[in-house]
Write a protein that binds this DNA or RNA. Sequence first.
DNA 1: TCCGTCATGTAAATGGTTACATGATTCG
DNA 2: CGAATCATGTAACCATTTACATGACGGA
Lengths: 175, 175
Amino acid sequence: MSRAAQTDLAVLAALSLGPATGYALREAVHEHLGLFWSESFGQIYPALTRLRGEELVAADRGDRPGSTVHRLTPAGRERLVELMREPPPTSPPRNGMLLRLFFGNVLGAEACRQLVTESRARAVALLERLAVARATTESEPDSPQRPYSLMTISAGEHSARAAIAWADETLAALG
Amino acid sequence: MSRAAQTDLAVLAALSLGPATGYALREAVHEHLGLFWSESFGQIYPALTRLRGEELVAADRGDRPGSTVHRLTPAGRERLVELMREPPPTSPPRNGMLLRLFFGNVLGAEACRQLVTESRARAVALLERLAVARATTESEPDSPQRPYSLMTISAGEHSARAAIAWADETLAALG
DNA sequence: TCCGTCATGTAAATGGTTACATGATTCG
DNA sequence: CGAATCATGTAACCATTTACATGACGGA
């Protein structure tokens, strides 16, 4: 997997849903992929410039002066499938909450409880966001996209429920 | 939270378990924190140099010529507690597997099944490693460290079981 | 008119991995 | 003796965020 391939993948994938400006692209990633992906402007604009150079995306003038609407070219769609078939890179683990909890006897029991309580609250909030996302998705008419959206929502739900169950068990152990 | 604080935290925390060389420190992080944390030599050695400069760790000559054993100073222990009380930074989400699955109609059903199957296999393998870690920890004599080790192991178990349950559900949906 | 949003881009700083260079020690 | 391990450190590279600079448009 070559340079910056993950951002290229995300940008090409987002464009596969329809043409968009760089700005709208970032909105769409935040809105639809926000639960498991993120991109910043500092990544998106250089990526679009590069992808234009490789003729994987084409640029048209947008409604507003100075705005540029990008769309996938056939070569871009090929490249997208190619990138998607690459195994997803696994990033090294970095869980600040567990790092702190592991050294709980240095941190103290009260601070540990707070740590786990806050972690639980984040999982509960996530579960609420997921409930909204599920309701929205289920109320939309069926589409080729829908089952896959529901699968990623379900992944979040399983993960959040596990986090809550663990937090409850751990809070009980912490007394 | 200032510069490179997360690595400082991990290094100071690892040293709180006992003095160590940079090399041994990396081994210890990999061995004991590997399930939720990672550090590379390229981080550890500059961090040790910096922490020595701040007199948060002290350096003694080791058994081997040229080797340096580091230990926490009292100021280092204070700093450690201070860093641990900072809220753990939440890194932006980046889940390559879910990104690919979300665009499953571009990827194709067969490749989706493979993606989820591999994800399930990783979770099963993780669960096995966790079973070993749990058995090891439970067979050791009780210590102030042990309950916290078990809590982090339990976090991994909950997360891995949730990943397996989700994978089974999703594979059923994918047919 | 002024503010919020849409829009594009760059520069700097940050955080991190990987590869490399170097050499001693231990054990088979 | 030779290989694996212990040990330290640097340099290059990569990915990413944040802040900044700039400006047009639409509506209160």
